[in-house]
């Protein structure tokens, strides 16, 4: 019998199979911790070392306990205030400095830029001691400001915004200059709306960084009323035992604001990308 070729039978390239498999494995690796976090939060204490994803006896008792514990709300509020103020501050100051370094020519511009960039090479662990000494000298220990001050402006954000402002044509700024706007108005009304995707990405990044920050808030505060969520959740871990089900419940609740932030800013990222395609 002569060979026939079945045109309806689609062949899948091996490279595609490998790509999909790798992506699927990557996806599973990223989703599994979240699945286990949710699973553990629905387990009774005796079940938590059982690796079953679906608990034998699911319970919402942990959620009731955490939400009825007044401390959770305090930690949540502290984290929200700190992450929100730091995000707003960093987005404004990073973009202001990034814009200045990108669009203004002045003596020493490159030195300033390199100096800011070079701070990215210093790990947080090394900065913690000088930060602590500063906070102590200025009387900022055990205060919101003490937790926030290292993050109100970031070298990474400055670098990111400088690079994004490169894509804003100078004509836009010059047109506004001729129309009579001052330099601050030009930055705010013309340049900033044109880099919305970058601002959104930066806002998400800064918010998540501050929402999940642990080492610095742990060091700078010892008043439980000022604990942030990650620091507060560790109080469920005591010398004799670690109440994983409560920690995971707190962690699951803590992801809600980050999801909201991501979903809100994601829209601006997409809208920003649509606008950047505009040209003559």
């Amino acid at each position: 019998m002569a060979d026939t070729f079945d045109y309806n039978k689609k062949r899948i390239a091996p490279a595609k199979v490998i790509r999909w498999t790798l992506l699927a494995l990557g996806g599973i690796a990223m989703v599994m911790p979240i699945v286990f976090m949710l699973s553990t939060s629905l387990k009774w204490p005796h079940e938590i070392y059982n690796l079953k994803i679906i608990p034998d006896e699911p319970t919402i008792e942990n959620y009731t306990y955490v939400l009825e514990d007044g401390r959770f709300y305090q930690w949540f509020w502290n984290s929200l205030v700190i992450a929100t103020i730091t995000t707003i501050s960093a987005v404004i100051f990073d973009s202001l400095v990034g814009y200045t370094l990108c669009k203004f020519r002045f003596r020493g511009r490159m030195i300033v830029f390199v100096a800011i960039l070079s701070t990215l090479m210093i790990p947080t662990e090394m900065l913690v001691i000088p930060w602590y000494l500063m906070a102590k000298d200025f009387g900022w220990l055990n205060s919101y400001w003490g937790i926030m001050f290292p993050g109100v402006m970031t070298a990474f954000g400055t670098f990111l915004m400088k690079q994004f402002f490169e894509s804003v044509p100078d004509d836009f700024l010059e047109a506004a200059r001729i129309d009579g706007l001052n330099e601050f108005q030009i930055w705010w009304s013309v340049a900033m709306p044109l880099v919305t995707p970058a601002l959104s990405a930066l806002a998400i990044f800064i918010f998540l960084g501050n929402w999940t920050a642990f080492i610095w808030p742990l060091i700078v505060t010892n008043d439980p009323a000022l604990y942030t969520l990650p620091v507060g959740l560790t109080t469920f871990s005591v010398e004799q035992s670690v109440e994983w089900e409560l920690i995971m419940t707190g962690a699951a609740l803590a992801t809600i604001p980050t999801l909201i932030v991501f979903l809100v800013f994601q829209r601006y990222i997409i809208r920003g990308v649509v606008m950047t395609g505009l040209k003559g």
Binding site: P169, D171, F172, E174, A175, A176, I178, D179, G180, L181, S189, V190, P193, L194, T196, M275, T276, L278, K279, G280
Partner: peptide, 26 residues
């Protein structure tokens, strides 16, 4: 003076009305 640029320099995030009226902001 008023200047018209090669790539128009009209702001993509503003409507035509706002673009035209931009010069009157101040």
């Amino acid at each position: 003076i008023a200047m018209v640029f090669q790539n128009y320099a009209i702001y993509p995030h503003m409507s035509v009305r706002k673009n035209i009226g931009f010069g009157l902001r101040t």
